[in-house]
Design a protein around this nucleic acid. Structure first.
Length: 588
DNA sequence: GCCGTTTTCGGCCCGACTGTTTTCAGTCG
């Protein structure tokens, strides 16, 4: 049997939830299946691995019932109960669920009452809407019929496919819009909301919040920001579709109630659910306007998030942690991590200069002295230059050693000449070849202080092969100190490798190799959820920019955001160490 | 169906919006 991925399992459980909804099952049962699906989708290990270890019950939201169905699935390839269920719901109902505005109940009624065809369900629905057959149906109407046509169009354009932008892109747009909004006056405070405030690696819409006593004035000014379409405007704010196709939603709120709104719209959904459960257990009902005492019905507004969290007996929780990964429990036990700040970073170990190392990969655009001056401006004590290794195809091992020796001498003399006061580590980013061997001959290692090893090819190897490959590389040479952009993912264009991460983390710990958190907005690799797993088994990190030009040196903050989302503390970050301590670690 | 600092039974997040309603159901975030 083809092994089911977590995404496929989540999809299956969501289908079960939808089927139950159509069949008017207990709504909490439906929620339970949806929650289990959500939980499985966000796991960093395969559900199959939990099953192998007999630990299905450890997955949050998976209890005895769902665990026994999953067990049946892994044993026999199917679940009799689910199959029975699916027999009662035509498959085309699930297709319609992809149309915005259609949930299980409406989809089911449309399919059955209009007798929509299995293969032609979308076309049939469109035909029915155009023929005016939907409006007379009970619970539907003229508006519903028109909406369905609009939403079908959205569906067909594929607009509901994930179309998320890089965090840095969203950040840039937000900064610009926020400056514009401030110029309009009456802004007491302005903040990012949602995934942007939580610094998620990819962002859908840009959400902003403004505290003001003059909401109309702020909104009227906001809607004069250059746009292609005013999507919505009301007393609570407005939404604009910008010329770049991105949507910006701005909400306005009175300063007295601002804290509750900021908390509510920062999310995440799962964090808020957990927080509201926590509040309810204390007789407090939380919403976007404030906190209601369940007994008295009295609603108290909060001007700040700090006061809002305090009211439910918790310290303020940094937005990056609000993903329901144990942050509420940690807050209760006063065990919240002390998150790092970009100012804690004392050096950048992964940069490429324009020095021609005769590599098959790309070189940088600036010379070392420029990097050193910029590093001094950023307050760094040291940098590491990790140019790509010379091409193996074009040179013999001896030639490569010579090339590397010459470079080492050049960089060292440049370091001496520089007035920046910043120290240089002469490093190298070495390819991990498909068999795990390093693409730098042994004799060349004499001419580097340390190396970063990275995957740049064969990203689709199977789990065992790629895991062995990484472990082989770790053991190849004691100068291997950093594992660069570990998964190799490129956001929106390439999946990372499918390694056995717990095994990789154990090996990193064993060899004291730091995992890189690559700050490049297209990478943000190691991904935050894997950082979270790694940090909890004691792995340490470097946060680097992988700069190929000076301007990228400013992107360090995005790597720090990933670290914060992964619960990393300053002590877990090697390049938060001062020069002497760091050198001791790097060159030991 | 899940789960435990009120609970192994009896709860389960909250509100906005929409359309069709005359008190609510479905969908969404």
């Amino acid at each position: 049997m083809k092994q089911l991925t977590n995404i496929e399992l989540a999809h299956l459980l969501r289908k079960v939830a939808a089927a139950y909804q159509i069949l008017n099952e207990n709504r909490f049962k439906i929620i339970a299946y949806d929650r289990a699906a959500d939980s499985i989708e966000h796991l960093t290990s395969e559900v199959k691995d939990y099953w192998d270890d007999g630990k299905l019950g450890e997955i949050p939201g998976v209890g005895q019932g769902i665990a026994s169905y999953l067990d049946e699935l892994f044993r026999s390839g199917k679940v009799a109960h689910f199959d029975d269920l699916m027999k009662r719901i035509p498959a085309r109902v699930f297709t319609l669920l992809l149309v915005p505005g259609l949930g299980p109940k409406k989809a089911y009624r449309l399919v059955t009452e209009l007798k929509l065809g299995e293969k032609t369900v979308i076309a049939d629905l469109e035909k029915a809407a155009k023929a005016g057959k939907i409006a007379p149906m009970e619970g539907f109407g003229e508006k519903s019929e028109a909406d369905i046509l609009v939403n079908l169009d959205t569906y067909k354009r594929g607009a509901i496919k994930e179309n998320r932008m890089a965090l840095s892109t969203a950040d840039g747009i937000a900064t610009e819009v926020m400056a514009f909004v401030k110029k309009g006056g009456a802004v007491e405070q302005i903040d990012r909301l949602g995934s942007l405030r939580r610094q998620v690696s990819t962002i859908g819409d840009i959400d902003l919040a403004v505290a003001t006593t003059k909401p109309e004035q702020v909104t009227e000014h906001f809607v004069t920001y250059p746009h292609q379409k005013l999507v919505e405007k009301g007393p609570g704010g407005a939404t604009l579709l910008l010329h770049n196709g991105r949507q910006v939603d701005m909400r306005v709120q009175h300063p007295k109630k601002y804290g509750a709104m900021l908390q509510y719209f920062t999310g995440s959904k799962n964090h808020n659910i957990k927080l509201r459960e926590h509040g309810l257990a204390r007789g407090l009902s939380l919403n976007e306007h404030g906190i209601k005492n369940v007994k008295t019905g009295k609603l108290t507004p909060y001007s700040t998030e700090e006061a809002f969290y305090k009211a439910v007996g918790l310290p303020w929780i940094p937005p990056e942690l609000r993903e329901d990964r144990g942050e509420i429990e940690a807050a209760l036990n006063k065990k919240l991590p002390n998150l790092p700040d970009v100012s804690d970073i004392k050096g950048d170990l992964h940069m490429h200069t324009s020095y021609d190392l005769q590599s098959s990969h790309d070189v940088g655009r600036n010379v070392l002295s420029e990097h050193l001056d910029r590093a001094a401006e950023l307050g760094y004590e040291y940098i590491g230059i990790s140019d790509h290794n010379p091409s193996l195809a074009k040179h013999s091992a001896t030639e490569i050693a010579t090339i590397m020796k010459k470079r080492f001498a050049f960089y060292k003399s440049e370091e001496k000449k520089s007035k920046s006061g910043v120290h240089v580590f002469v490093m190298c980013e070495v390819d991990i070849m498909p068999d795990g061997k390093l693409a730098l001959p042994k004799e060349a290692f004499e001419h580097v202080d340390a190396v970063v090893v990275s995957l740049h090819s064969s990203f689709t190897q199977d789990k065992k092969t790629v895991t062995d490959r990484i472990l082989t590389a770790f053991a190849a040479n004691p100068k291997v100190r950093i594992f660069g952009h570990p998964t190799g993912r490129l956001l929106g264009s390439r999946e990372g490798v499918n390694a056995d991460w717990p095994e990789v983390f154990a090996a990193a710990k064993k060899y004291d190799i730091a995992l890189e958190i690559n700050s490049s907005p297209q990478r943000l690799d190691l991904p935050d959820i894997l950082v979270y797993d790694a940090v909890h088994v004691g792995v340490r990190f470097t946060i680097d920019t992988d700069s190929h030009g000076l301007e990228s040196m400013d992107l360090m903050r995005y790597g720090v955001s990933v670290a914060r989302r992964g619960w990393v503390q300053k002590g877990d970050i090697m390049n938060a160490l001062g020069y002497t301590e760091f050198k001791k670690w790097l060159t030991k």
